[in-house]
């Protein structure tokens, strides 16, 4: 078995507020194997984007990383100096941002935006080699060479997202974090962009952490999935197991949520509202909305435990596997 490329250990990211710290990410532990596609799902406000940014140490005030470790190939990104993390970003861990529309510079040509990052990391690379690399990247994300000279406004949303993808893979990183890369696109374009992302991932052997809320997209794309609720992981497992036999009551509700083309009828929502993170409920954060709550749930916080090999769940309904 290959060693994990990315290990997140007990990561905590808080936001400073006038009423005390808000625990947006509260002790998340997860790991990615080389070449693996891992999905992270949750409702808005569950802390998934905060977690994604913290992995690259891009957390901005009032947010701060309270503690924990992010080990990328053994290097703790939380501890290294600002200079060192600059060298790691893009070269080893890259981000595909949520809004491709607003993350490109509107007054810079596509080619310059792609070259920009490479130049910063490989200062000695000659201009002709840069140009060549840029064209290779465009071809990899299935963009036409003539698009190099265009400006972002001349491209459609899907194409802009491809440009962001080209930038993310420009230095062949080990891990790509894709934060809802297609949430602004319609289904046809979404499928095309995701297929390209999959092809690129396979050809480079890079690990992908896909962050999103679309359970359908997750089922189509990832191999393993983690369900985030109120800053904590509720369940982790292979995507097939989690979908076929979800353990945590929240996961079950989440999977039942999206309307399908098969049955028409009652809409299923999750009763109640996501908890206020400033003043979270006692015990299990999900217990006020949980259909299977017991007296224990409001008292004791369930820890994430391995109920059988590879399946982790944070719920009092399950007991840890005996080893």
């Amino acid at each position: 078995m290959k060693a994990d490329i990315l290990q997140v250990r007990n990561l905590r990211v808080y936001y400073q507020t006038s009423l005390g710290p808000l625990k947006a990410v509260d002790g998340v532990t997860l790991s990615l194997k080389p070449g693996e596609r891992f999905g992270l799902v949750g409702e808005s406000g569950s802390g998934k984007s905060t977690l994604a940014l913290a992995l690259m140490r891009l957390t901005k005030p009032p947010g701060y990383i309270e503690g924990g470790q992010v080990l990328l190939d053994g290097l703790d990104l939380i501890k290294v100096s600002e200079n060192e993390i600059r060298k790691v970003r893009l070269a080893q861990i890259a981000l595909v941002p949520q809004g491709a529309m607003s993350s490109l510079n509107p007054v810079m040509r596509i080619k310059d935006q792609i070259i920009d990052g490479i130049k910063d990391h490989l200062k000695k690379m000659p201009g002709s080699a840069l140009e060549e690399r840029m064209h290779e990247l465009l071809a990899k994300v299935e963009l036409k060479p003539e698009m190099a000279n265009m400006f972002p406004h001349e491209l459609s949303g899907g194409m802009k997202q491809r440009v962001c993808l080209a930038i993310a893979i420009s230095l062949s990183p080990k891990v790509i974090i894709a934060d809802e890369p297609t949430s602004a696109l319609d289904v046809v374009v979404q499928r095309q962009v995701m297929l390209t992302l999959g092809q690129v991932q396979e050809s480079l052997g890079v690990s992908i952490l896909l962050v999103g809320h679309d359970m359908g997209l997750m089922a189509q794309f990832v191999e393993r999935i983690g369900v985030l609720y109120a800053g904590k992981l509720a369940e982790v497992g292979s995507v097939r197991e989690v979908f076929k036999e979800s353990l945590h009551p929240y996961t079950r509700l989440l999977i039942a949520c999206p309307p399908s083309l098969e049955e028409k009828g009652q809409f299923k929502g999750i009763p109640g509202l996501p908890p206020l993170l400033l003043n979270p409920p006692s015990g299990c954060v999900f217990h006020p909305r949980c259909p299977q709550t017991t007296s224990r749930c409001s008292v004791k916080i369930p820890s994430l435990k391995e109920v059988y090999p590879g399946r982790w769940v944070a719920c009092h309904l399950y007991t840890e596997v005996k080893r």
């Binding site: 299935e142 963009l143 036409k144 698009m147 459609s156 194409m159 289904v187 046809v188 979404q190 499928r191 095309q192 297929l195 390209t196 679309d214 359970m215 359908g216 997209l217 997750m218 089922a219 189509q220 995507v239 097939r240 979908f243 076929k244 999977i255 999206p258 399908s260 083309l261």
Partner: peptide, 21 residues
């Protein structure tokens, strides 16, 4: 193109051209 929330029902291979400027 609708992503089906079922890992056993994968998207079919795309028969339409991916790139349309």
């Amino acid at each position: 193109s609708i992503p089906v929330p079922d890992p056993d029902q994968r998207w079919g291979q795309d028969s339409t051209p991916v790139l349309v400027s």
